[in-house]
């Protein structure tokens, strides 16, 4: 996308995923990863930054997200249009497989990208909504370890909320 003259002007950083794939990102993208902000600001990001907890598949998605957010915010459009655009993008971006969503959430937590973390958590919460107890158990791989009496007690404690 950038020509070689632009490259010399713009600072770029190299991010290495868990499986050894190296991604080149601009500063506007890299600074969104709070976990590496200090490395960038302290000029300790050479030759590349290793991100041990993120696979290349997930890192590519994370970079796509940060890139879009950086471009939209610096695009010079009005705040409301930018907001709308980000909302649409975020909605489409969250349209992924449940496993990928879990991985993205975990990566956003590790990389400390607040907006992506909140977005993935919100989306995970919406997956819990509208599901039956049995479906939620299956989804989160948890087993029912209540005795009948215990389950009754739980239902009693939360009886007000079921109304």
């Amino acid at each position: 996308m950038s020509s070689s003259t632009e490259l010399t002007e713009k600072k770029v950083f190299l991010l290495k995923s868990l499986d050894g794939v190296i991604f080149e990102v601009e500063e506007s993208v890299a600074v969104q990863l709070e976990v590496i902000r200090e490395l960038i600001e302290g000029d300790c990001a050479r030759p590349f930054i290793s991100l041990y907890n993120v696979t290349s598949e997930i890192l590519a998605l994370v970079i796509e997200y940060c890139k879009h957010h950086a471009e939209t915010c610096s695009g010079g459009t009005s705040a409301t249009i930018a907001d709308e655009d980000l909302k649409t993008f975020d909605n489409e971006f969250m349209n992924v497989d449940e496993n990928i969503l879990l991985e993205l959430c975990s990566a956003a937590d590790y990389l400390d990208i607040k907006s992506l973390f909140e977005l993935t958590c919100r989306t995970l919460a919406s997956l819990i909504k509208d599901r039956t107890i049995i479906e939620v158990r299956k989804m989160f791989n948890v087993e029912n370890d209540f005795s009948v009496v215990e389950e009754k007690a739980v239902r009693k404690e939360f009886a007000w909320a079921f109304k």
Binding site: V142, F158, F162
Partner: peptide, 27 residues
């Protein structure tokens, strides 16, 4: 979900409303 640190799990749950949390509590 259960592999996540507890603060992450709690943050996810904070987006539910009480009736949804109540169902979740029964799991």
């Amino acid at each position: 979900f259960s592999d996540f640190p507890e603060d992450v799990q709690l943050f996810i749950l904070s987006f539910l409303d009480p009736s949804e949390l109540a169902s979740f509590a029964c799991t």
